[in-house]
């Protein structure tokens, strides 16, 4: 029994380690060479040095793009999460004609490629006279993130939650009180998770941002622009900063989900 177990472990190590190397080596190399002292990010590694970070933070183009990314990310995620929460509440708690069709339409964009959505938005925006702008990128990100945010929040509207809302009504709560005192507090972890998920997707998103941003590009677009002029440790440094921000949001997202599961068990 034990022998076969350790045999399995040995095989898992054999299979999993190349997999992890495959996934994480590029990131590790990116991060390592952001501390490179030389002009070109190729081995051998020289350093460590923070020169390139200093350059990144001194570059108006990069910092303003970072700021643009934050504005677009936060605002589009707020809008996507708000719309998703209201849609989930409406569909889960009210009789809506054609609810199943609406639900399907809300999930459908998940299956459509970003390129198709981006080009579609570009054509549609120029038809109605909205130029390339951060606003256009933001609307695009709402379109991309709404289905995800909806899926996360909608999953929380289960029978247990319906029972608790019923109990609140029984105790004399009005519909507004039920929503504000029971529904929203119980949804809080799911809403936070939906927001953070939207934020990380928006932060990393390139295609739609590339197609729709004009003179105010977002960070991924600027990094792509830097790559066109050749490899440079400054790109590595910018990439590392983008990666760290995503990582932080990812960690908060995990913690929020974990808390939701623990709450569900306790309830």
């Amino acid at each position: 029994m034990n022998a076969s177990h350790s045999g399995w472990d040995w095989i898992s190590v054999l299979v999993m380690s190349p997999l992890f190397v495959f996934i994480y080596l590029p990131v590790a190399v990116l991060v390592l060479f952001s501390f490179h002292a030389g002009q070109v990010p190729v081995p051998p590694f020289e350093g460590p040095s923070l020169t390139w970070y200093a350059k990144v933070l001194a570059s108006d183009r990069i910092t303003s793009a970072g700021f643009n990314s934050i504005v677009v990310g936060v605002l589009s995620s707020l809008v996507a999460t708000l719309l998703a929460t209201l849609a989930a509440w409406g569909l889960a708690r009210h009789r809506v004609p054609g609810a199943r069709a609406i639900e399907a339409l809300l999930f459908l964009p998940l299956a459509v490629s970003y390129l198709v959505i981006g080009v579609g938005l570009l054509v549609a925006f120029s038809a109605v006279g909205i130029g390339k702008s951060l606003m256009a990128v933001g609307i695009g990100h709402v379109v991309l993130n709404l289905p995800l945010a909806f899926a996360v929040v909608y999953g929380q509207f289960d029978r247990d939650q319906a029972r608790l809302e019923q109990a609140a009504r029984d105790l004399g709560a009005t519909e507004v009180q039920v929503f504000l005192r029971v529904t929203v507090p119980l949804l809080r972890p799911a809403i936070l998770a939906a927001f953070l998920l939207s934020l990380t997707f928006s932060w990393d998103e390139f295609i739609v941002a590339f197609l729709l941003s004009g003179f105010d590009p977002t960070l991924p677009v600027v990094i792509w622009g830097m790559l066109r002029t050749g490899l440079n440790p400054q790109t590595n440094a910018a990439g590392t900063l983008v990666f760290l921000a995503s990582l932080a949001a990812g960690i908060v997202f995990e913690v929020a989900l974990l808390r939701r599961r623990r709450d569900a068990r306790a309830g």
């Binding site: 029972r163 608790l164 019923q166 109990a167 609140a168 009504r169 029984d170 105790l171 004399g172 709560a173 009005t174 029971v182 507090p185 119980l186 809080r188 709450d263 306790a266 309830g267």
Partner: peptide
Amino acid sequence: VPPAKRPTATVFQDYALFPH
């Protein structure tokens, strides 16, 4: 009359206590 306006209160089978 809707539940909120009835002079009734219920002890539910699964208690339905508010976990938050």
